[in-house]
Design a protein around this nucleic acid. Sequence first.
DNA 1: CGCGCCTTTGACGGCACTCAATGAGTGTGG
DNA 2: CCACACTCATTGAGTGCCGTCAAAGGCGCG
Lengths: 237, 237
Amino acid sequence: MHGMTQIVTQRSANPGRQMAIASQPRPEPRDALDLLEQFGSNVAIERDHEILSQGDRAEYCYKILSGCVRRVKLLEDGRRQVGEFLMAGDLFGFEALDTHDFSAEAVSDVVLRRYPRRMVEALAESQFAFARRLRDMAAVSLRLAHGRLMLLGRKTASERIASFVLEMAERLPGRNDRMVELPMSRTDMADHLGLTIETVCRVLAVLRREGTIAVARGGVEIRDRAGLELMASEPRH
Amino acid sequence: MHGMTQIVTQRSANPGRQMAIASQPRPEPRDALDLLEQFGSNVAIERDHEILSQGDRAEYCYKILSGCVRRVKLLEDGRRQVGEFLMAGDLFGFEALDTHDFSAEAVSDVVLRRYPRRMVEALAESQFAFARRLRDMAAVSLRLAHGRLMLLGRKTASERIASFVLEMAERLPGRNDRMVELPMSRTDMADHLGLTIETVCRVLAVLRREGTIAVARGGVEIRDRAGLELMASEPRH
DNA sequence: CGCGCCTTTGACGGCACTCAATGAGTGTGG
DNA sequence: CCACACTCATTGAGTGCCGTCAAAGGCGCG
């Protein structure tokens, strides 16, 4: 997924403070979502704590200010699927119907900005640009989910790992595009990729021995991006 | 890959509006999507022909009037993922960004109603109810996709087949909820469920021998719904 | 009737899972 | 500061589910 449109939130300069609209000197092409800022409040969640639970009524939407969040679905017998990992700048909960269909848990310590859902709805019913933004967000999420269907349905373990590392690399605009932070555990990765923790380890070990990546604590370094991309077998186009 | 798309434009029977989706006896609270009807035109597509291709610019959105459609994604080497099957009454193409990320192909002979995307956009920018409807549609699609992630990532072959049969049963409000039409080939089912055609056959054979279902041409009959539901291991809630 | 396509069934093999043990990193209390 | 406990990651051995390869039905159609 090449330069896939990512949910990019412009840095809200002052996440904690209310924006005085009048005092803004020259508002850039503003993100419609900025309209929400004045209704937001910050929330800190500790690592491994639950932010919201599958089936909860959707009371709030969230933006991640820092940290990493996983969205989790469970089967009765404990089998787990991590639908996605969300990083700083990402939004979630906006696509909810009346209830959430995923739990959300903090992978690391997390700071969120939380917006009342009724304000989201109110803005969607009164501002076309805002409604449009919500719709585009949903479309992007849907596209990402579709890519994941291909990954889970048809890719081998090696391809899944390669795709995952590349995806995380693209989502982190870290100044160095070779270092990829992976704040989540091997278990989380496995449950995201439809593998077991052992398989994740083994594939990473193979990639390391081949010189494709270097494995470090909390992340990997991409040493042969072309090789990794080849291995990822991304869909055409 | 398949032959070229044959598009037969039939005169829309009712240029005005109200296409009578399912001949509702009473003029219910109207669907915001009805606003689109006056801009729609009917299109017939023959079985196995392509409706739109992955990567195409999104010119149109569609509603299925009759028949069955599959949404397909391909890897370079030909591996295939069928993202979803769509039946009469279902809509697709509304969630597109500028391009489609799935191809759409006719599983059976299909009649579609086609709406210019620019009209969809125009209505979304001028009618809140319409924008709301689009957003809800995207949310529903997203929820379905999430369920499929669990299926592909964590369920066994038997569970996938059971889940699929039950899902198709629920989507077809056929007067008899035991008979489930399956217009798609075993290959299509396999590519939807992340299995091979042989595994699909074998699992169906097992279910048949167990008396859970009866396998007929073009569909199955559910003989033990409770057993099937147990086997499907649906997520909690 | 024969051809082609799809489905079904069988035999076999491999990729990824399971079970198990060891290693590495972190936090805690003596 | 170090021993200990605990968690997570890594590696190995063996197994099993499902994929691959192959052949035999079943059904429609010319």
